[in-house]
């Protein structure tokens, strides 16, 4: 039986800038920031909660998995807003929305009543969409 999800990946354009966004704007904590052999940087963040899920902030770069062309295509898709980072939960969507707006986080939808709760939609500094949901 699978009991939980430990890691999920968000592709970002620049790890330093993404770290600044997720840590200093969204208020996440750094899980790992490890320089691996081969030059790869293993960077994870997670929300301050009981959650065990860590988000891996990874740059699409030319390498074993991506050709130069593939990496460029993915970077382009990120910039176009083709990818979603996921759903972040909050106890008070309106309040958190206001706090994040004050910090300069861009939103494309203010808190809105939905069937599943109150939801706002924002964009990280790479172009990934995320939902901010109060259930």
């Amino acid at each position: 039986m699978i009991t939980s999800i430990a890691h999920a990946t968000i592709y970002v354009l620049n790890q330093d800038e993404a770290l600044d966004f997720y840590k200093n704007k969204l208020g996440f904590e750094v899980g790992d920031d490890m320089k691996m052999e081969g030059g790869f940087r293993w960077l994870t963040v997670y929300p301050k909660s009981k959650s065990q899920l860590q988000l891996v902030l990874a740059e699409p770069k030319e390498g074993p998995m991506f050709t130069k062309d593939s990496a460029e295509k993915i970077r382009s898709l990120i910039e176009e807003g083709a990818f979603g980072a996921g759903v972040f939960e909050t106890e008070n969507c309106q309040k958190t929305y206001e706090e994040l707006v004050a910090k300069g986080v861009e939103f494309i939808q203010p808190p809105t009543e939905q069937l599943y709760g109150i939801e706002a939609m924002g964009i990280d500094n790479s172009g990934n969409w995320f939902s901010l949901v109060q259930r």
């Binding site: 890691h7 691996m36 052999e37």
Partner: peptide, 9 residues
């Protein structure tokens, strides 16, 4: 001074 690959999933 670098982590080995075995340190990550």
């Amino acid at each position: 001074f670098r982590y080995p690959l075995q340190a990550i999933p």
